[in-house]
Design a protein around this nucleic acid. Sequence first.
DNA 1: TGTACATCAGTGAACGCGCGTTCACTGATGTAC
DNA 2: TGTACATCAGTGAACGCGCGTTCACTGATGTAC
Lengths: 246, 246
Amino acid sequence: MADDTDTERSAPRTARERARRELTAEIKEVGRRHLAEQGTALSLRAVARELGMVSSAVYRYFPSRDDLLTALIVDAYDAVGEVAEAATPPADAGVVARWVALSGAIRGWARANPHEYALIYGSPIPGYRAPVDTIMPAARVSQVFLGLLRDGIERGELVGRMGDEVVDDPAIPAVLQADLAAIRDAMCPGVPDSVVARGLGIWTEMFGTISFELFGHMHKVINDYDAMFELQMTRAAEHLLGRPVG
Amino acid sequence: MADDTDTERSAPRTARERARRELTAEIKEVGRRHLAEQGTALSLRAVARELGMVSSAVYRYFPSRDDLLTALIVDAYDAVGEVAEAATPPADAGVVARWVALSGAIRGWARANPHEYALIYGSPIPGYRAPVDTIMPAARVSQVFLGLLRDGIERGELVGRMGDEVVDDPAIPAVLQADLAAIRDAMCPGVPDSVVARGLGIWTEMFGTISFELFGHMHKVINDYDAMFELQMTRAAEHLLGRPVG
DNA sequence: TGTACATCAGTGAACGCGCGTTCACTGATGTAC
DNA sequence: TGTACATCAGTGAACGCGCGTTCACTGATGTAC
């Protein structure tokens, strides 16, 4: 994994290196499509077959099926992170507009890539244990969101329950305060507990809404998913601000 | 499926019938445990093996692997529905207490049966299409929640944005109003659009929170899941009421 | 610029496994007279 | 109450399939002198 990233960074020096890079990408591409076509079941042999190579040849590129899966997972996290970064307007657009844009972009990516979404936000894959390599890419999209909270505090749009300085919310138990403090220190310095907590709330609500839509739990119940999502995300923003939007 | 339900209802008349019922239950039981032990991969042969029968014998009880899966899914929906019904206090306990009890019970069931939870609320199973038989059991748990909203309106605890009679919320687009009206007519007459909408919001937030916890997306981020869940559900209740709790 | 050796990509066969499903069968249980 | 027939549960063998992974190999590409 680590060398893969190195390889991706520097320019290819030889034809062999270029071919290797292209085939690695092609294998992942086909893997992604297979994921999209037959669900979470990813078969090395099927991928090799489609590429016209013998199954054992894939082992030159990925030491095992799980490593290919890991690569796809990392790519998916990176993709949604990139989409989130690109779609989020600068700080002066304000927290609400940024939140609506961010959540809409994440949902858009999820709808366009439902199986990749399921891969990273759905049920854990049987027999697969996520290696450490997936942790950092997974955090990327949350960083965008927590940055948004931080800007909201800095610009005075968001306020903690106890005013706008970092204070403990007495309604929050001590153990949880520690968790929230760890998040704040790592990703959004200056954001009070209550805002981090409310942020986590709307963050999970967003993924819950997307999952309900994509996994079919609102089938025949909600027809206009676009309107529903926008309504819920606006309400979520109100909840975050602590007052009606607009 | 339909005859299965019939069989379950009436008392067994013969030894054969009793044996059949017991073995059917045993097959499901083992299937459930396999689901819990090796994830979403459910193998007819493995189930048969554990029961000491030959794999083809299972076909006397379930016409195919997918039918066994369907039975497990139906059972899971029924189980969570039953837990929800049992855990929710009567109407005079008030909306907030009932909501906290209900959400806590659903989470409790999910934590106790994570793979059954994933089966019904996680990513769709590759190659499996849910038959109509699953629709009614799936609705059972939502009925408890929507009944809670209805009682909240009747008792005057919850109010729509435009007062406490059924009115359209102008912020909600027409198509969505139709969806909400269909839900109201089927499951919670008298509950205004805005309350149904906010209800759906906290309902998905709850499942989002449970999924994040069970699927490991808060691993090493939140340590005290109990406190976090309670905090979020209390905040959700505030959101539903439109004012701080207690 | 040319040669000798090392590195690497891809082959093809094989191993050992598990899966869902069908089918003709034996023997036990239930039913009608 | 006893017998004859119909129903059903479970067997065992087989079909045809796909899977991940290993391994000795050939031939092409890259590197050092």
